[in-house]
Amino acid sequence: MIHLQGVNKQFGNGSNAIIAVDKVNLDIAEGEIFGIIGYSGAGKSTLIRLLNGLEKPSSGTVKIAGYEMSSVNARELRNARKKISMIFQHFNLLWSRTVKQNISFPLEIAGIKKAERERRVNELIDLVGLKGRENAYPSELSGGQKQRVGIARALANDPEVLLCDEATSALDPETTDSILDLLTSINERLGLTIVLITHEMHVIRKICHRVAVMEAGNVVETGSVLEVFQSPKEPITKRFVSQVTEPVGTEQVLAHIPGGTLIKLAFVGEKTEHPVLASLIRKFDIDVNIVQGNISQTKGGAYGTLILQLLGNEKDVDMAIAYLHELGVQTEVITNE
């Protein structure tokens, strides 16, 4: 569905050149919800502009929905944009138009007859949960409702790909979850391929099948969301994962735990339900204190973390850690005193 090979995007020349996207290779499958995460300046917004044809790569190829975006002519680009739609952080609605008129707008541009426009708009209003708000203006809507209008408008021309550029970052957490649930439902019901740009790992965790992590224009890590949660390789990925798995202030809490050995356990899938802690206490002559614990749900299954303080002689503690490895529990020693 989407294939990027050796994609570079450079702005300016010589000493003033800025490389926004650097040698990016990505494959995104049809029907997948794919997340691209990075901090400001990572290159993710430039990457999404390359996907919708607003920018052309300096080198490399961008293929999406059957179109080579780096070489399409103006007519082909117009056709491509019927298959590639987009929703935005700040909604980009027409403030002088009602909900119904906003959703109808791309159908008017496409020359769709009025009766068909009416049918399609009503269908989309039901799909995004805005029944009863058809005649409201954007100024009368909440942030979540505005984004629902944006989603409905983006779906008006039956696209194959939906690009989401920080689509929830202007919303509160509860509204964010409702919009993510809507995108998941749309993906499942319509088989739509969704590419989601964000700087929030919660968004990735909740709805994405796979994720690419960007830093300084490079894709530094890719994989299924569960794999990335379980074994983040790059420092930036570890920081993103900790947004979800470790509460704010974790480092300060750990710094004030007196004595013993602090270990971090990671559980995946069914292992999150195993009585590992009880087995540890029964088998070894050590004291075990729970410092912190968390379970996160991803599209690929559950991922849990547990930070323990182990108190006992060095040999028993080492045997306990070895036992955890035997059980297949990923174990990291944080401090050993």
Rank of each mutant, 00 (worst) to 15 (best):
E188Y: 08
K283F: 05
D172W: 03
E108I: 11
P57Y: 00
N289V: 08
N313S: 08
H256F: 12
G223I: 15
Y39G: 11
V121W: 00
E134Y: 13
N73T: 02
I48D: 00
C164H: 04
N187T: 09
E221M: 08
V62F: 01
E314Y: 15
V21F: 02
L171Y: 07
L47S: 07
V161L: 08
Q89D: 06
G260V: 02
N73S: 00
K206D: 01
S71A: 10
E134H: 13
E30Q: 09
N16S: 12
T168D: 09
I37H: 09
G191W: 02
V329L: 10
S59N: 06
N336D: 13
I307Q: 12
E337F: 15
L141C: 03
V213F: 01
E326Q: 14
V244E: 01
G259N: 09
L192S: 06
A29H: 08
H3G: 15
F105W: 07
V99D: 13
S70L: 03
D126A: 14
P275S: 04
I112Y: 04
V291C: 11
T298A: 01
T46D: 07
L50H: 10
V333M: 14
A320D: 09
D172L: 05
T61E: 00
K100E: 05
S58N: 03
G304F: 03
S178T: 12
L26D: 07
G249A: 02
L280F: 01
G259D: 14
I125L: 02
Y67N: 05
G191D: 04
I125Q: 02
N187W: 05
R153K: 00
G53S: 08
L324A: 07
I207Q: 00
G223A: 12
E314K: 09
G132L: 10
G143N: 00
L155R: 04
G191V: 09
I194T: 12
L327M: 13
R239E: 15
V219H: 01
T176D: 12
K299H: 06
F267D: 14
R210W: 11
D165K: 01
A42V: 08
K238H: 07
P159H: 04
L196K: 03
R205M: 10
A17H: 07
K238C: 09
T168I: 02
A80M: 08
K146F: 14
A29Q: 11
I37A: 07
L254Y: 10
A110G: 12
R75F: 04
S178P: 06
F240E: 05
N122L: 03
L226M: 07
I84H: 06
I194D: 11
Y137I: 15
T237G: 04
K315N: 10
I112R: 15
T46I: 07
T331R: 15
F229P: 03
E227R: 06
E68V: 14
L130R: 05
E174T: 09
V219M: 04
A170E: 06
E140M: 11
V62N: 06
A80G: 04
F11S: 07
N218W: 06
I28V: 10
S45I: 09
L107H: 11
M1D: 05
Q145P: 05
I236N: 14
S70K: 15
S71I: 15
L163E: 01
K63M: 15
E32C: 02
T305V: 12
K44M: 00
G53T: 00
Y323A: 03
